[in-house]
Amino acid sequence: MDVVDSHQHFWSLSASWFDWPTPDLKPIYRDYAPADLLPEIEATGVSKTVLVQAAPYLAETSFILDIALKTEFVAGVVGWIDLEQPGHLVDLERFADHSKFCGIRPMIQSIPDVNWMLRPSLQPSLAVVERLGLTFDALVRPEHLEALVAFVDRYPNLPVVIDHGAKPEIAKGREGFDAWADRIAAVAERPHVVCKLSGLLTEAGARAGADDLLPFVDHLIGTFGPQRLMWGSDWPVLELASPYSAWLDQVRAFVARLSESEQKLILGDVARNFYHLQA
Rank of each mutant, 00 (worst) to 15 (best):
W80C: 05
L118T: 07
D113C: 04
H88A: 12
P124N: 05
H98F: 14
S121E: 13
S121M: 10
S125Q: 08
W80G: 04
G76Y: 12
L132I: 05
W80P: 04
V78E: 06
F95N: 03
I111G: 06
F151H: 07
S121F: 11
L92C: 10
L139G: 10
G133N: 08
A75I: 06
P124S: 05
P156I: 02
L89E: 10
L122G: 06
M117N: 08
L83T: 05
F101V: 01
D137A: 05
I81Q: 00
A96Y: 13
R105C: 06
P159D: 01
N115R: 11
V152F: 04
C102R: 13
P86I: 07
F101E: 00
E143A: 15
A138Y: 14
D137E: 12
R154S: 07
I111T: 09
H144V: 03
L134Q: 12
S125F: 14
L145N: 13
S110N: 14
L134A: 09
V90W: 12
W80A: 02
P159S: 01
V114R: 15
T135I: 08
L92V: 09
Y155M: 04
V160H: 06
V114W: 08
D97I: 07
W80N: 01
T135C: 15
V161A: 06
A150I: 06
H144D: 14
D97C: 13
E130Q: 13
L83Y: 08
R94G: 07
S121V: 13
V161W: 09
D82R: 05
A96L: 11
Q109Y: 04
R131V: 12
G103P: 03
F101I: 00
P86V: 07
G76S: 00
L158W: 04
Q85L: 15
D153L: 08
A147S: 15
A127M: 14
G76E: 04
L83E: 11
S125R: 03
P159T: 01
P106N: 00
I81C: 01
P142G: 10
D97R: 15
